[in-house]
């Protein structure tokens, strides 16, 4: 099975790096046969919407090279880029992970999200400001948002995401990221999709 994940944010928030950390976490876990990760190429500018993709395969080599149009999991690390089309692009029984100050049910109501979609939310931006995870005036929402994936991706424990964050940033820089990631993870709110999706 190949799980297709799309990470969306704005240039400068680290969506591309987040998608790569995710691929590396799955790779480090040794629970996946193949992984790949790439951005929507060449269009990254600070402040502009940016999308990055990660594929995790448990059983087969990944040969497809196309972009992910209908992700199993959509991760949005900046709520201001949200559009109806983006939410509608999630596959049936898929998962929506969002950095927001609202709870899961509020998001479901606000965006009219169908029953089959699992919704995971956490106020990552707030935690970044609270614990001063700020670089150049920008809250580093990517690493804590990616950590939320451990709640919904089978065979991907939080410890591997943390290990991948450490590899990406180096031990000393990673420390605060890991702290905020754990808090964002603990404080996450989830609305489980009706037929399947989400893990206990």
């Amino acid at each position: 099975m190949i799980t297709e994940i799309k990470v969306s944010g704005r240039g400068g928030l680290g969506a591309v790096t987040g998608a790569e950390i995710l691929a590396n976490a799955a790779f480090l876990s040794k629970n996946f046969k193949d992984v790949s990760s790439f951005p929507t190429f060449g269009t990254e500018r600070r402040g502009a919407p940016v999308h990055a993709f990660t594929r995790l395969s448990t059983d087969q080599t990944i040969w497809t090279r196309q972009q992910i149009y209908n992700p199993d999991i959509l991760v949005v690390i900046d709520e201001t880029i949200l559009t109806e089309d983006l939410i509608k692009s999630i596959k049936p029984n898929g998962t929506f992970v969002l950095n927001t100050d609202k709870c899961a049910q509020e998001i479901v109501d606000l965006y009219n999200i169908s029953d089959d979609i699992t919704v995971v939310v956490s106020n990552v931006t707030h935690e970044c400001y609270k614990y001063n995870l700020i670089v150049g005036g920008v809250p580093m929402v990517n690493t804590p948002s990616i950590a939320l994936l451990a709640k919904v991706v089978d065979k991907l424990d939080l410890k591997y995401i943390e290990q991948a964050i450490e590899e990406q940033l180096g031990k000393s820089k990673a420390e605060l990221n890991l702290k905020v990631a754990e808090i964002a993870f603990e404080n996450a709110d989830m609305r489980k999709g009706k037929s399947k999706g989400g893990k206990d």
């Binding site: 193949d34 992984v35 790949s36 990760s37 790439f38 060449g42 990944i62």
Partner: peptide, 12 residues
């Protein structure tokens, strides 16, 4: 090899 599609894509 394809620019971006391989050049900028992570794989094992």
């Amino acid at each position: 090899y394809d620019g971006y599609i391989l050049s900028h894509t992570l794989m094992p």
